[in-house]
Design a protein around this nucleic acid. Structure first.
Lengths: 144, 144
DNA sequence: TCCGAGATTGAAAACCGTTTTCATTTATAA
DNA sequence: TTATAAATGAAAACGGTTTTCAATCTCGGA
């Protein structure tokens, strides 16, 4: 669980000549505790309740650090804000409801394989990918 | 070719009670002439050369109109700016080279079908999707 | 343990792309 | 042609991100 991520972060901090601070620890913990895809602001507001002193800039800087060291990835679901997501071991993609904003994660190995084939046919080496399906969940479909 | 798109735009304009203006025509033409995925700013700067009077806001507003009526789609490749792309009849996805920025379009019906299946299994109705593969093209792979 | 170089912090300002405002101009229907 | 309502361009506002800067903190070395 999170112990592993904390070690990873600590290792990255050390390897880059950075410093371990209370804020960074707090932010990492809050980030890992959150099952969502928080934006900087959401995480900042959450942290603020317990730790009023913490600054928005520090939260954002730390989230970028997490992205650099592979603990988080940056997502953009078109709402104008970057969202940060914990990197699970497995890659996964997203179903996004355009009605209520619900985000469902999924993974599909067949799709991944086809992606590799496509890349190969264009002589590309894939480093990463992003797949999002936008639509309506069953609830929103009823409502409209 | 573009005549079709112009008619589509004209029809949309009429259906919404909007007005056909010289600027809108110019912007549509410039957009269609461009084979790239321009941002508002890029298109604006291009247009400015021939038509110095034109305003940034008008370009952006018109691009949004084009997106509304299905002539353009909004893309976000992570560089912080919205990019607009002409909708070909067929949907297609992108291979993006993280080395040189090269963007290659592709389409793959098998992937599309699998996407539909995934959505159905979560009781979603897909309206749109976005698939991007990030990696290195053959040139950049050699260089590094 | 204490010190000092250098990294980090928080607040505020700067930044940058997007969106809105508003007075003026323009397209369209009567 | 005229009235009405939409569109335009310039500038300001906006919102999220990034930078600045003085004060604070970390951590290795004395």
């Amino acid at each position: 669980m999170s112990t592993e991520q904390k070690q990873k972060f600590a290792a990255y901090i050390a390897s880059q000549g950075l410093k371990a601070t209370r804020q960074r620890e707090l932010i990492l913990e809050a980030f890992l505790a959150q099952a969502e895809h928080p934006s900087t602001e959401e995480l900042y507001l959450g942290l603020r309740k317990e730790h009023p002193g913490i600054g928005y800039a520090t939260v954002h800087r730390t989230l970028k650090l997490l992205a650099e060291c592979g603990i988080a990835t940056v997502r953009n679901f078109g709402d104008g804000a970057q969202r940060f997501e914990a990197c699970a071991g497995e890659h996964h993609d997203h179903l996004v409801c355009t009605g209520c904003g619900l985000i469902i994660e999924f993974e599909n190995l067949q799709i991944e394989k086809l992606q590799e084939q496509v890349a190969k046919s264009h002589d590309f080496t894939v480093q990463d990918h992003r797949l999002e399906l936008y639509g309506l969940c069953s609830n929103c479909r009823k409502g409209e």
